[in-house]
Amino acid sequence: MKYAFSFLAVIALILIAWLGSQIPGMPYLFGIALPYLAMMIFLGGFVYRVVQWGKSPVPFSIQTTCGQGKSLDFIKHDRLEAPDTTAEVVARMFLEIVTFRSLFRNTKSELHDGPKITYESSKWLWLFAIIFHYSFLMVVIRHMRLFLDPVPFWIAWLEFGDGLFQVGAPTWYMTDIGLLAGCVLLFSRRLITRHVRFISLVNDYFPLVLIFAIAVTGILMRYFLRTEIDIVNIKQLAVGLVTFSPVIGTEIGAIFYIHLFLVCVLLAYFPFSKLMHFAGVFMSPTRNMKNNTRAVRHVNPWNPKIIPHSYGGYEDEFREFMVDSGIPVEKELPPKKDEEKDEE
């Protein structure tokens, strides 16, 4: 049901864009107003969320150590897994963010009783995630060619690399396939793996379907419906958008508006969803803190003033016993006391 709803929602969005953009005058809404609005929500929301997170302090140093900490000279320190300096933290975070190291850690011992299935199954999630995220990143970077005039040389290099296999005409980009495959794989995993299906919410299916639809419309435009769209006009609009002087030329094509509208939805949805993990991963205290808490004091800004049950109070209660058994005391016993300790 949850995944079906995601499909319905995306289909509804597609219909809105398709029908909407046919109405005269509406291209200005879909081509100019909504993209600006979506970008504003995205940037504003993104910054708002990060600031909100930043507003809450990190009262305690709660790093998780995944290896030997720095201690004695002859004990080998695992610099990446239990970082002691800022540089080591940066290296840890870099690998975490760039290679999804924690997911890769998902290894299993090779000691098996059954002859079948070995430990590769535990790397699937890592693999799917890598395919999905890197394809997405490349697709976004390649789109920069639409907004930049002249197109920087490095984008052309990336495009060349991406289309290295020279399949089809125009050349298919690996990352287009990768993005589609990533969506399908992650989506199927949610459906098929029982415990993941049990925990999945609409919020988990919807972005995948949305991104899938964006990729499909994009691919349709590039490979199949090239004649339906006017790439010159699109570039003109894109450059116009970034230079704050947007113009919509003649007919651009409904498929373009669908694509753009879905992207707008994704942008606007981003700051209010789990997609914020993109920013959160940088700020996770268990990963971005140094494991040097005994060497350098971490300060809690709201450290409450709480004093222990005092030694004085403790000695007052037990002085007699302490004196009797020869434990040193601060204050000797008074000459004589009549009160007996109450039992029970």
Binding site: V58, L201, T286
Partner: peptide
């Protein structure tokens, strides 16, 4: 308001099941 960890952990989970 007192623990950034709580806020981030509430917002960031993608329910990947790892």
């Amino acid at each position: 308001g007192k623990f950034r960890s709580l806020k981030i952990f509430m917002d960031c989970c993608v329910r990947c099941g790892a």
